[in-house]
């Protein structure tokens, strides 16, 4: 039995320690907002937060995250900054198929949580790990810039 803290709730899970966090979240806890895209940390669809930092849950053995605070896309909507990000995603009509967007939003939110100064280069660094096959990149950039401006951290 492993003890996991996901979205503020403690769970006891009976899984092998090497099972990636992604599959515990999706198949055991039934939180399917976090997506499977590649399984080798190449696409970022599985991005969640571990103690506020973005991590690729598809390559993270669950035993290595015991005791850490895990946040998934389902756990962010109470946070004002996250709501701003989600609002910006809608205002800029970012999503197309939408499959990668949970991961995109988790990476963007981590950037906005972490940085006091954001510019295009910072967006490149923070978001280059998240693939979008619909290629919504132009709008992702605009949405992040929009939130950065609204919270006063956009510094081109």
């Amino acid at each position: 039995m492993l003890t996991l803290n996901v979205n503020g709730t403690t769970h006891q899970v009976d899984v092998p320690g090497d099972m990636p966090l992604l599959w515990v979240i999706r198949d055991i806890l039934k939180l399917t907002g976090t997506k499977f895209g590649c399984g080798i940390a190449q696409c970022g669809a599985c991005t969640v937060h571990m103690d506020g930092k973005p991590v690729r849950s598809c390559v993270l053995p669950v035993q290595s995250v015991a005791g850490q605070e895990i946040t998934t896309i389902e756990g962010i909507s109470e946070k004002p900054l996250a709501r701003k990000v989600q609002r910006a995603w809608l205002d800029h009509e970012v999503a197309q198929c939408g499959y990668c967007q949970s991961g995109q939003i988790m990476s963007a939110l981590a950037l906005l949580n972490d940085q006091t100064s954001i510019n295009d280069h910072a967006i490149d660094l923070a978001m280059a790990g998240n693939l979008c096959r619909c290629a919504t990149y132009t709008r992702i950039r605009e949405a992040i810039k929009d939130v950065s401006e609204s919270v006063g951290v956009w510094q081109p």
Binding site: R26, K30, L31, T32, G33, T34, K35, F36, T72, I73, E74, S77, Q86, W89, L90, E93, V94, A95, G98, Y99, Q101, S102, I105
Partner: peptide, 21 residues
């Protein structure tokens, strides 16, 4: 017009085939 399908695509609630149970 604003897309009808996007609100659930920004909060993890949208279900794709791979998410079904």
């Amino acid at each position: 017009a604003t897309r009808l399908d996007t609100p659930t695509k920004v909060n993890g609630q949208a279900k794709f085939t791979i998410d079904l149970d």
